[in-house]
């Protein structure tokens, strides 16, 4: 304190420096908190089955592909993986196909009922949506959609659709209306203006929300476990076999779930804020 009063400028500079160090230390610590558990899972996935069950553990992977190859060759895994991809792809198509037009309408028009629709979309957030798989299971049996990829994709679309609407809404809102109007004055119909001006500008964001829809479906456990029996997705398969499967199978399966997620989040990182329907400057 006395030093600070003698040389106030240096004192403030020191305080700033200390603050900077604290900030960086906190940031690093928080990063470690997030990354370390993932790293440990990957260590397990990249070790041989014996190493996974052995004690004490090594903190570095041996890059033995034993666990992973066991996992891939385990009965049902390849099919579950394939089912996950199919369901997630269908979810992605449905969510964007239904969500993007709605997002566009919300961003460009004022019309009676707009508030009601937004409320409907936001309301889905306040409900534990996977629970809706319970009544749908019955409905699907009646309509022959039970245990099918499309049936599960429909439920996953309920989860992904509100996000698709909100992301595309904020995306289209960020594209100035004047660009569209300029296109109209230059001879475009509404559809031509959308295709030639709006779509090229919105495409990266639409792709991101598609990836996000894919991720939601890829990760979903409860509805997948409720609605599939023969055609299990990866999450449903892992959940089902939690009781009996060996540790190295679980960890390899965990890694198979996590690694795509890392890539997904990296791909959509610019649009993280848009998905909560909040603007970020």
């Amino acid at each position: 304190m006395s030093v600070a009063t003698e040389t106030p400028v240096a004192g403030i500079a020191d305080a700033h420096k200390a603050g900077d160090w604290l900030l960086i230390a906190t940031a690093v610590l928080l990063c470690v908190w997030v990354l370390l558990p993932i790293y440990l899972l990957i260590v397990n996935a990249l070790s041989s089955p014996d190493q996974v069950t052995a004690f004490p553990k090594r903190f570095f992977p041996s890059f033995d592909l034993g666990s992973l190859s066991f996992f891939i060759n385990f009965a049902g895994v390849a099919r579950a993986l394939w089912n996950s991809v199919i369901v997630a792809t269908l979810t992605m198509i449905l969510a964007i196909g239904f969500g993007a037009p709605a997002g566009y309408a919300l961003s460009r028009f004022d019309f009676p009922g707009k508030g009601t629709f937004r409320f409907l979309v936001l309301m889905t957030r306040a409900f534990p949506l996977p629970l809706l798989a319970l009544p749908l299971a019955v409905m699907f049996i009646r309509t022959g959609l039970d245990d099918t990829a499309i049936g599960l994709a429909l439920v996953h679309t309920t989860l992904a659709l509100p996000f698709a609407v909100l992301i595309t809404f904020s995306l289209f809102s960020c594209i100035p209306v004047e660009l569209e109007e300029a296109a109209w004055t230059l001879g475009c119909t509404r559809w031509q203006a959308f295709r030639k001006v709006i779509l090229p500008l919105a495409l990266p964001g639409i792709a991101a929300s598609a990836v996000f829809a894919f991720t939601i479906s890829w990760n979903e456990v409860f509805a997948a476990a409720v609605l599939t029996i023969e055609n299990r997705t990866l999450t449903a398969f892992l959940l089902q076999s939690l009781g009996e499967s060996p540790l190295y199978l679980k960890f390899a399966g965990g890694a198979a779930l996590v690694v795509p997620a890392l890539i997904f989040i990296f791909a959509v990182r610019k649009y993280l804020f848009a998905m909560w329907g909040i603007a970020n400057r």
Partner: peptide, 9 residues
């Protein structure tokens, strides 16, 4: 990152 990770994972 954890945003993209399934609760099961």
């Amino acid at each position: 990152i954890p945003l993209g990770i399934s609760d099961l994972a």
